[in-house]
Each structure stands twice: as structure tokens, then as C-alpha cells.
Write a protein that binds this DNA or RNA. Sequence first.
DNA 1: GAGGCGATTGGCT
DNA 2: GCCAATCGCCTCG
Length: 199
Amino acid sequence: MTATMVRDDAGGLLSRDFFARDVVTVARALIGTTLLVDGVGGTIVETEAYDASDPASHCFGGRTARNASMFGPPGNAYVYRSYGLHWCLNFVCVPASGVLIRALEPTAGLARMIERRGTSEPRRLCAGPGRLCQALGIDIGLDGRSLDAPPFALAHGTRDGAVGAGPRIGISKAVDTPWRFWRDGSRFLSRPASGVASR
DNA sequence: GAGGCGATTGGCT
DNA sequence: GCCAATCGCCTCG
């Protein structure tokens, strides 16, 4: 195993350089890192990558008012409304690409999450892009905001265990592209693992 | 300007 | 398993 460009110091904060890389690399590297919004959040256990040449990406058709944040600098948030009612959080990587955060293992601010979600079932708090945004209080007000400043706090984790890869969920284009990543064996995924696990 | 669809979720059959 | 909720964006006229 060769050394990676980005060190994996437990507790160290993720820098903009972490995001200024290929979106698939970042999507995989994010598994096991910690995301907090105003102190509420947990360990990222599921992500998906979307890049500019990808028919399934919001960027594919060019820039619009909605996706403008994805054309901004790496390390910013892109928040959009899904199906007219839910919010979804992305991390912008190289321009016109982003990582959709699909599920967290809740570790901090559980009481706040339960209050916002209206359920105390741990597995239901952050398992899904819309659910985790509701649990963390994320809405359009955070669109375009820098991830290295409050209310966001992202930190490296211990990145132990295997990471699985498989097709993305809920899309109708590029359905076979294996750009969904998850922490293998996690009980907090939005949907069951479907694909190949590797280290 | 109208119609259809989507990176979803929760409730009901 | 099916379906409604609800709105930004795309396509077509």
C-alpha cells in the first residue's frame, strides 16, 4: 500500500485541498470522516459521486440558478431541493462535480436529531439524503457555504474497515456507473449494500 | 404557458 | 408494493 496524498489524522480537519481532487476519489475518501453542523452529526457511511460528464448529474445540462454552487470552488456545499420537499447536501469537488452525502452514523447531538426528525429510531435518523439534512438542520441557507467554517465541521476519521462500491440509487441515467460508496457492514445505510467491497 | 419528471420519503394497501 | 406531496427545471408548443 502506498502513502496517500492526504493524511488520515484522526480528528484533523479536512482542508479545501481534500476536495480539490477527482470526485470519485473524494467520494470514497469521505467514508469514515465526521460531519457536524452546529455540533450535530456523525460518521459519513454512504456517498455518491456526480461529475460534469455524467448524464445523472445536475451539472450535465450546464449551469442554472439551482446548481450554481457546483461551479464554485472545491470545498463548498451544494444544497438543493429534491422532489419539491426534501433537502440534499453535496460537497463540491473539482468544478462541476460533487459528492452527495447519503447517510451518517449518528454520533453527536442525538437529542436535536430526534427532535427534528420526530423519531428516536437511530437507524432512521440519518439514513438517506433527505433524512440527514432534516436531522442536521440543513436547508438552502447553507448552499454555497464553505465547509471549513461554521456551522460546518468536517474531520478525518479512522477509516478502518472495507469500503463498498456499487451503482447509485434513485437515478434513471448512467444507472450502472458504480459511484455509490459505503462503509461495509454499516447498519446506517439508506439502502442495503449492493456491489463489491474492498479496502 | 402547460406538462412531465426527478440524486426522496412516509403512509397506506 | 403503491402512491401522494411539491417545486425547480426541461421540453414542447
